[in-house]
Design a protein around this nucleic acid. Structure first.
Lengths: 200, 200, 200, 200
DNA sequence: TATTAAGCGAGACGGTACGTCTCGTCTTAGA
DNA sequence: TCTAAGACGAGACGTACCGTCTCGCTTAATA
């Protein structure tokens, strides 16, 4: 949030002014953080960024595009690598919840999901993003397979899908404050299963 | 969608006219189905229902309230009871996806979730609804515990949470067309776990 | 303003309840006085009178009708009879201005005139009322003719028209606070004329 | 009513589009003429002008402001100068009545007066307008004083007030169809007075 | 060095929807 | 059969944003 306090931004010739682009992205993030998705409008962003609306529309074709751009700027949560899948996933989930609680990322991501229910482009972007994230998160499972911890026939992305879905829905229903004990119970179900008699 | 084609609806005295309420609910459902959440406005519903806007606002304080009311009217998917939890959950998930695909319910539910990201009341309603559904879905797990299929220390609602989250996120990301084989893989992970060496 | 504080008024059988009618008239007057013509609505009157809207519409077909009824209840200003026309007219004008200043009559009459620009019935009622008042006011002139003070060929209602018009327009443009000296100048013009050389 | 049939009006940059302003004024005039003050709403004007409501509200803060603006555009009636005050005033009155009968001006002016009974801004504007018109009409009297026809101690604006009031009230009570003979009787009273014995 | 081209802020434009207000009508329950 | 009550369809109110447009400016690249 490197508050670029240029008194007035002008054109810098026949090319995009990065200062304007940054100011707009930062304003978008700030608006989203302060007023939430409900208060997130192009007008509000333009006002805050001291930018003209056409400048925004020139570079981001829709509210969704700006939203996604802002989301892409957010830091991602890294995959832990403890040598134990349950610990990896539990730690990942806790880090994700913490990230969503303590940065604008959570608020922004909720907005992206909401926007995707209305806007086709946002839906596509979200689908692609989710796909990539599943692949990324799936690497924790792949490592567990490699070290023989997890069965070889397990599809890493399916496990990642389960974990991510759990996280998303908690975000969407205001349940990202849960402690490690609670989330670990869910993770353990996925990793160990829930059957009384172990499966061969 | 029992198109109540009353030529003109009038007041029936100093109390709510159920014909109007029904017409509004049906119009809301129809608008949602035809124009989607993006086209869902109180004005559009009033227009379609041939009702005055104040009549809508008199009984539903917000768009969210109407949305939730419409959603509540939707048929719920029943829990199967095959005697085998994996089969129960797989069948439940397939029925749910089919229900979301073939009735307005899916479209409406997506809208409720989106609205909940903006509207406090919708968020509360959604939270409560989700809580109830977890309890309901959890009964499948509880039955499995009772018959000794599942460990007694498993919390049924946590399992329900995992299954429901998987379903919700598939709905939100346009992946409810998946076949039984795919969903069953996810269910199997939850039920049997994914470890190479079974847990004692 | 004999505040009829009936806790609840009910039907008194198959005929008009005068208490309701009075309460409505009084409420109308009070609303007009407190909120002015701008705040004068059937809803506001019904609310204040604790009466049902249909009860009002049953007896007064329109806002205009109620307005006129309320105006008709107002005390009229009497014609003075000093034996001198200029004094009579000057005194009449001052009494009228005072009446309009110190009672709701002024506010109500302004409303009737405004309403008559929109409502046909109010226009008719106002026309008739104005006609009667000209006849009444004209009697001062008629008396002056009888006693030889004024030429016999003078039409009393024309003089009354001039005086009344002057009064109305002062009411409509917020100039009813003028002192006797000012109004007398206008009266003198009508009575004595303004020519330098007297007319034979 | 120079029907500016621009197919579509657009913004012409960060400044007022006179074409829109004109279209709105013309639409307002047309609505007023066709539907009267009762049918005069911002919505109706916007519809007719093919303008957005906010465009109207941007430039005219209220219905009253638009009404007054439209009224200001109307042609004024000129003062005649025949060398004889009675003829001047009689002719002025007839011209005014004719103007009010044959152009939208009469209808608009009635509306302004009605609006002024509700709206503070309209009241102020009307007061100021009336003041100016009295000064203007008073010049006929001033000229008569200059040429010795009228006494020097006569206040021209008082006479103008009498004449204008007579005209206004006739407009407000639907009596602007009167012929010259009738209006001349009133004018003669003001000019010559009505006393039997001439005043010294 | 002068011209051109495009980005910039600003803000007006025609629209749509918001949530509220009042209109005049209707029906009911109770006296 | 009249009363209070209040719901009803209708539609205007004044406001917020939408996405588009045109302006006057500024600067960099081109001629």
């Amino acid at each position: 949030m490197t508050e670029t306090t240029d008194e007035t931004r002008r054109s810098i010739g026949a090319r995009r002014n990065p200062a304007s682009a940054d100011a707009i992205r930062e304003a978008a993030e700030a608006v989203l953080l302060e007023a939430g998705y409900a208060g997130f409008s192009i007008e509000a962003v333009a006002r805050r960024a001291r930018a003209g609306k056409p400048t925004i529309y020139r570079w981001w074709p829709s509210k969704a595009a700006l939203l996604i751009d802002v989301y892409q700027r957010q830091k991602r949560v890294d995959n832990p690598d403890t040598g134990n899948l349950e610990d990896d996933l539990a730690q990942f989930l806790q880090s994700l919840f913490q990230h969503w609680r303590e940065t604008p990322a959570g608020s922004i991501f909720r907005s992206v999901i909401a926007e995707a229910q209305t806007d086709e482009a946002a839906a596509t972007a979200l689908t692609e993003y989710a796909h990539n994230r599943r692949a990324h998160t799936g690497r924790m499972v792949a490592r567990a397979i490699e070290r023989g911890e997890v069965r070889a026939d397990v599809e890493p992305t399916v496990v990642a899908d389960l974990v991510a879905s759990y996280a998303w829905v908690h975000l969407l229903t205001g349940r990202i404050t849960e402690d490690e004990a609670t989330t670990r119970v869910a993770i353990r179900a996925i990793v160990h299963g829930i059957l009384a008699a172990p499966t061969g």
